[in-house]
């Protein structure tokens, strides 16, 4: 990929749900290749909706480009291979009877030949430390294990942009630490929606605050996370916005 083309480029994106409720308003966001960006904001701010726009599950007015490629019907297969979306609840993400079949799902639908599918499944599972679990069924896994397999399901597609929705939700501190260390090893561009400010600080140098469907702040995480007044203003501290 050309380094000068942004990994994610969102221009003037607005979106309303069918019931008329506006979820995104004139969002602008540019993410460079390899950058790790946190999306932070109160519930209902539009974080998950924004992630769903990245590979065209939802489509609004405006432009979304992935490595310069417009998210549109004619590009949708390539876009979905480029953007790996990991849902908040791994029970939604892992819908196959075995771990192996789930990690193979993306490559199968990309139309890859069998040996390459097998190679990718093994590599992705090894990358998240779940190589021994291939024949297990997802319901026999712990939440932390499910989250790692969920990540493998998009790594096997060789996605270059990973969009993770609340990756640390429901994890105990040990599993969370392990997940953060794993995510830090990934070379991909990361967009992480999270309420977990510790994860944001440990993983993402850049942070974007959303509120009411808008991006209201964008900058250096280390600085913004210690700006109590900023966090309170955007309902990110415990007694704000009461």
């Amino acid at each position: 990929m050309n380094e000068r083309i942004a990994a994610v480029e969102i221009v003037d994106l607005s979106f309303s749900y069918p019931d008329g409720h506006p979820a995104l308003r004139q969002v602008h966001l540019t993410v460079a290749p390899g950058e790790r960006v946190a999306l932070v904001g109160p519930n209902g701010a539009g974080k998950s909706t924004l992630l769903l726009q990245l590979n065209g599950i939802l489509r609004g007015q405006g432009h979304v480009r992935i490595h310069g490629l417009e998210v549109a019907e004619e590009n949708i297969r390539r876009i979905r291979a480029l953007v790996g979306l990991v849902f908040q609840d791994p029970d939604d993400q892992l819908f196959s009877p075995t771990v192996y079949e789930d990690v193979a799902f993306g490559p199968i639908y990309m139309g890859l030949p069998l040996p390459e599918i097998q190679e990718r499944v093994q590599r992705s599972l090894a990358q998240v430390g779940m190589a021994d679990y291939a024949q297990r069924t997802p319901h026999h896994l712990s939440v932390g294990e499910k989250k790692r397999v969920a990540l493998a399901t998009v790594l096997s597609m060789d996605a270059t942009v990973l969009a993770l929705d609340e990756p640390s939700a429901g994890l105990d501190p040990r599993a969370r630490g392990r997940l953060i260390r794993l995510l830090k090893t990934l070379p991909q561009t990361l967009l992480v929606s999270s309420h977990d400010l510790h994860l944001v600080e440990a993983l993402c140098p850049r942070m974007v605050i959303m509120q009411d469907g808008r991006i209201v702040a964008d900058g250096d995480s280390a600085r913004m996370l210690h700006d109590e007044e900023l966090l309170a203003r955007h309902c990110l501290s415990e007694d704000s916005c009461e």
């Binding site: 769903l52 590979n55 599950i57 297969r77 979905r80 291979a81 953007v83 790996g84 979306l85 849902f87 939604d92 993400q93 819908f95 799902f105 993306g106 639908y109 990309m110 399901t153 998009v154 597609m157």
Partner: peptide
């Protein structure tokens, strides 16, 4: 949605 995101058609 999760299936679509991974190319289900």
């Amino acid at each position: 949605d999760a299936m679509l995101a991974r190319g289900y058609d």
